[in-house]
C-alpha cells in the first residue's frame, strides 16, 4: 500500500466507522450467530440448543458429499471466473478499437446487468434445452451431442455460459475503461519501436491493465461463488445426481430448505475459512504484480 499522506489518530477510524458498523451488524454479526450454531445442535425454532463441541465439524468433514461439493466449488470458482474474465477481456480489447460497431457493442454489452438473475437462469435453461433449444438440431444429427440434464460436463458448460453472460457487463466496463485510459502515445511509441499489435498487448496494454485486472479477478472470483447460488437454484437444483451441488447452494438447501441449521452453519464456517484463504492469497500474491504507476 502506498499514499499514507495524512497522520491522524482518530479521524480514519471515524471515517471507517459507518461502514464497519453496517458490516458488523449485517455481515459479521449474522455470521457470528452462525458460528454459534456450528458448535451446537440447534432446533430450528430455537426450542433447545445443545453444545456439542466439534461434533458437527467431525460429521461434515467425514461426509463424502461435503468433500465432493467443496471440490466442485473450487473448480467452479476457477473456471467460472476464468472464462468470464477471458471473454470480457477479449470483448474489451475488440471494443477498444475505433470500429463502426464499437459504440453499439460498448452499450449492449452492459445490458445483461439489467436482468435479474432469477430470469437469466430460466432463459438459458430454455435456450440450451437439448430438444428445443439452439443446439437441438445438432442433437438430431448426433444423438447425445448435447444434454446438460444428464451429462455433468454439459451441465457445467451450461452454467459457465450463463455465468459469462451474467458477468460480462461489470468485467467488460472495468477492463474497457482501463484500456481506454492507456495513452495513445504509448501505442505510438511501441509501434515506432517496431513491436506489432500482439507484442504491444503483452508489453503495454496488459501491464497497464493490472489494476483493473486485479479488481476484476477479486470481484469475479467472489461473484462466481456467491452468484452460483442463483444460477444453480434456477437451472440445475444441484443435479444431475448432486454434481452441481456447490457449497453455497448446499448450505442454503441443507439449512433453509431442510432446517438442518447446525449442519449448514458448520459448512458456512468452513466456507468462510476457505474464502479467507482465497482472499488472502489474492492480496499476498496477486496484488504485488499490480502496477499503479502510469
Amino acid at each position: 500500500m502506498k499514499q499514507e499522506i495524512f497522520r491522524s489518530r482518530w479521524l480514519p477510524w471515524w471515517l471507517s466507522a459507518p461502514q464497519l458498523i453496517v458490516l458488523f451488524l449485517f455481515f459479521y454479526l449474522p455470521i457470528a450467530l452462525a458460528f454459534f450454531w456450528a458448535f451446537h445442535l440447534e432446533q430450528p425454532f430455537g426450542g433447545r440448543s445443545e453444545f456439542v463441541g466439534l461434533e458437527n465439524f467431525r460429521r461434515v468433514l467425514g461426509s463424502g458429499e461435503f468433500w465432493s461439493s467443496a471440490g466442485a466449488t473450487l473448480l467452479y470458482m476457477v473456471l467460472a471466473s476464468g472464462t468470464s474474465i477471458l471473454t470480457a477481456l477479449i470483448l474489451a480489447l475488440a471494443a477498444d478499437r475505433a470500429l463502426k460497431l464499437s459504440p453499439l457493442a460498448r452499450n449492449v454489452f452492459i445490458w445483461p446487468k439489467a436482468v435479474a438473475s432469477a430470469s437469466i437462469g430460466v432463459i438459458f435453461v430454455f435456450i440450451l434445452n437439448p430438444f428445443l433449444g439452439i443446439l437441438a438440431p445438432l442433437n438430431e444429427i448426433w444423438p447425445g451431442f448435447w444434454n446438460p440434464r444428464t451429462n455433468v460436463t454439459h451441465t457445467y458448460i451450461m452454467l459457465f455460459v450463463t455465468n459469462v453472460w451474467n458477468a460480462i457487463p461489470f468485467t467488460f466496463i472495468i477492463l474497457l475503461a482501463g484500456l481506454q485510459a492507456i495513452p495513445q502515445e504509448l501505442h505510438k511509441a511501441g509501434a515506432m519501436d517496431g513491436s506489432g499489435p500482439w507484442r504491444r498487448l503483452w508489453d503495454i496494454q496488459l501491464p497497464l491493465l493490472t489494476p483493473q485486472l486485479f479488481v476484476v479477478i477479486v470481484l469475479e472470483v467472489a461473484d462466481s461463488l456467491s452468484g452460483s447460488f442463483g444460477l444453480i437454484d434456477t437451472m440445475t437444483n444441484g443435479g444431475p445426481g448432486g454434481a452441481t451441488n456447490l457449497l453455497v447452494y448446499k448450505i442454503y438447501s441443507d439449512g433453509f430448505k431442510a432446517y438442518d441449521l447446525s449442519g449448514a452453519a458448520t459448512q458456512t464456517v468452513i466456507l468462510m475459512a476457505l474464502v479467507a484463504c482465497i482472499t488472502g492469497f489474492q492480496y499476498v500474491f496477486l496484488e504485488r504484480k499490480v502496477n499503479y504507476d502510469r
Binding site: 444428464t150 444441484g238 443435479g239 444431475p240 445426481g241 448432486g242 451441488n245 438447501s253 441443507d254 430448505k257 431442510a258 432446517y259 438442518d260
Partner: peptide, 19 residues
C-alpha cells in the same frame, strides 16, 4: 425427521442410477 432433506437425497441418488 429432516424429511425435506431426505427427499433431495433420494432424488440425487436415484438420478445417479437413472443416468
Amino acid at each position: 425427521g429432516f424429511y425435506v432433506q431426505f427427499r433431495d437425497i433420494f432424488m440425487e441418488e436415484t438420478q445417479k442410477a437413472f443416468t
